[in-house]
Amino acid sequence: MIAQVLYAFFTVVLGVGGCFGYFYGSNWLLDRTFPANANNDASAVRNLRVQANIRPWLFLGPALLLLSVYLIFPVIQTVWLSFHDRAGDQFVGLANYKWAFYDDQFRLSIFNNILWLAVVPALCTLMGLIIAVLTDRLWWGNLAKSLIFMPLAISFVGASVIWKFVYDYRGAGQQQIGILNAIVTYFGGDPQVWISLPFWNNFFLMAILVWIQTGFATVILAAALRGIPEDTLEAANIDGAGPFKIFYRIMVPQIYSTILVVWTTITVLVLKIFDIVLTMTNSQWNTSVLANLMFDWMFRGGGDFGRGAAIAIVIMVAVLPIMIWNIRQANNEQKGH
């Protein structure tokens, strides 16, 4: 244990120190090779100009290198791989995409992904909006929001353990220790194995993501609600609008763009959902989604990088338009301020 701690400490120092070392070292080297306080003015000016030309690339260098290796190269490579066979040697054209189109498991994953897309973003945004409006009028609203927000800090795996415990199943007649089955049996129902119930199990997995992401929606929407001018609300109230009318006619239209941002952000997250399905069911009982299918093709049964890459491209193509829209939205907002 001690050795492990020391080893960990040493690697941490080495990794972080190496990074610091690069920036200090390279800048020091630059200042030394082209000194700004050279003997004569002419060479000092020339040195300063050289410094100004080189230094930005010292600053940018590591970032550009890492971005190229970890993002730009993989995108090109994945596109290339998706047109090749399992080992990446033989060009196969659109065969991987054609396979995907006719594959039952792929269709199931797409279907499940669409199911997630239809339910989770809508439910999170709706719950978030309701909670934001309700807590806005309470003196302990911030505490309430913190508690709703808390699951966002928990990993998907941790959340899966929490919810597996909620869904825990014991045979009929036994004492139920999962709270959901305990409630069901209390009201006279039969205990169920929730996560293997065909079709409906998807919804029990979605509940986990809704539980996690509602806090995100709440916080962002609450911040937007604060931005509605008090005058507007007061005027509506004087005109005799009830709370519901104020909500539909004034609050929702005023924060409409924020609602869309929340919705699309959660949509992107849902398109890439992986951990929850892996830890809860490992894609069994017809719960597979695209990211898990891709993972299975990459690492299980010898791996087929061509098919895995094709699935990755499908995810990318689905995510792309939403992300572009989101970034443009964010940039517009920045310009507005």
Binding site: V75, F305, I313, M323
Partner: peptide, 15 residues
């Protein structure tokens, strides 16, 4: 590059 999903990078990087 903000739009690139993580999953895209895994196979090439692993190779």
């Amino acid at each position: 590059l903000l739009v690139v999903p993580l999953q895209m990078s895994l196979i090439p990087l692993l190779k």
